[in-house]
Simulated assay, not measured.
Amino acid sequence: MSSKKFFIIGLSGTTNSGKSTLTSMLQSAFPHAFTMCQDSYFYGPDDPRVPLESQGFQNWECLGAMDMEKMVAHVNSWMAKQESNKTPALLIIEGFLIFNHRQLSSLFDQKYFIKVDYSTSAKRRVFRTYVPPDVPGYFESVVWPKYLQNLEDIQDQTQIEYLDGSKSLDDLYNQLVQGIKAVLSGDKKNNS
């Protein structure tokens, strides 16, 4: 067993790839794990810090739409509290841009990214409720192009393990549980 005081796992992916659902499922395998969701750090709909696209849409698909300084401060605070641990603590952070924020990305012991294709993501997004709600054309004009741009931005991070989001949630869950257990036991080394 490792002498580390804590481990931090990052779970990212395409919009509507199952990140939140899988994070909830992982709590059954790791009941003492603490979880953090990047969505909790979005600015409000009327906040002028949310960038505007040329079409007039607010761009919720970028780091500028979130208070990332606050998120990193919360992660750092959590890490500081773990220094007196007798057994290692586990933090699972999920969010679609967690690897794009380089300071946050440097803190992960293991990184997972779930990929789904355009049509799967678009079909799933119809069933989600967003605040503010998606305006017509937002997925095609902003969400998917920004996803491709954000994905390109993390290609230099070779330690990200990409998962096939077309697999069942149970298969993805089992793959994640095995991977996280390997990290916790020291069988999987951090490459970041």
Rank of each mutant, 00 (worst) to 15 (best):
D47W: 03
W144M: 10
Q155G: 02
F139E: 14
K181W: 03
D117K: 07
S168N: 03
Q149A: 15
Q110D: 02
G18D: 03
M68P: 09
Y112W: 06
K181M: 08
C37P: 01
L172K: 03
F6L: 10
Y173P: 00
R124N: 12
E83T: 12
A80N: 06
Y112H: 06
H32F: 10
Q159N: 14
Q157I: 15
G56L: 08
Y43N: 12
F57M: 10
R49W: 06
S40Y: 09
L97Y: 03
M1H: 06
L97I: 10
I154A: 01
D109M: 02
R125C: 15
S40K: 10
S17Q: 11
F127T: 12
M71C: 10
K189N: 04
S54F: 07
Q82K: 14
Q103W: 07
D39M: 08
I180G: 00
M66W: 02
Y147G: 04
V142K: 06
M36E: 13
H32C: 06
V50G: 03
P51H: 08
S12H: 10
F139D: 05
V143Y: 06
N150Y: 02
I8R: 09
L148Q: 15
Y147I: 04
L169C: 05
L163Q: 04
Q110F: 01
S185D: 10
P132R: 08
F6G: 00
R125M: 08
G95K: 13
T14F: 03
G44T: 15
D67T: 05
Q110V: 06
D67G: 12
S2G: 03
N190Q: 06
D134Y: 03
M1K: 08
F99M: 11
I9N: 08
K5W: 03
A29D: 11
N190S: 11
G18E: 01
G165H: 01
L11T: 14
V126D: 02
E94F: 05
L172M: 05
S77F: 00
S2N: 05
F96A: 14
M66F: 09
I114D: 12
L26F: 04
T23W: 07
I92D: 00
A122V: 08
S84R: 07
I8L: 04
P88V: 00
M71K: 02
T23Q: 13
S192H: 14
T15F: 06
T21I: 07
S12R: 04
L52Q: 12
Q157A: 10
S121V: 06
Y43W: 15
D164M: 08
V135D: 02
L26I: 06
P132Y: 15
K4A: 11
V131L: 13
P145D: 13
I180R: 01
L11S: 12
I9T: 05
S40C: 09
S28E: 15
V142A: 14
E152N: 11
L163I: 00
L11N: 11
I154P: 07
K70W: 05
G56F: 09
L176C: 05
G56S: 12
A89E: 04
N174W: 01
V131C: 10
N16G: 10
L22P: 03
Q159H: 15
F127R: 11
K115P: 02
T129M: 03
R125E: 09
V50S: 12
V126L: 08
C62T: 15
N100W: 00
N59L: 09
R128I: 01
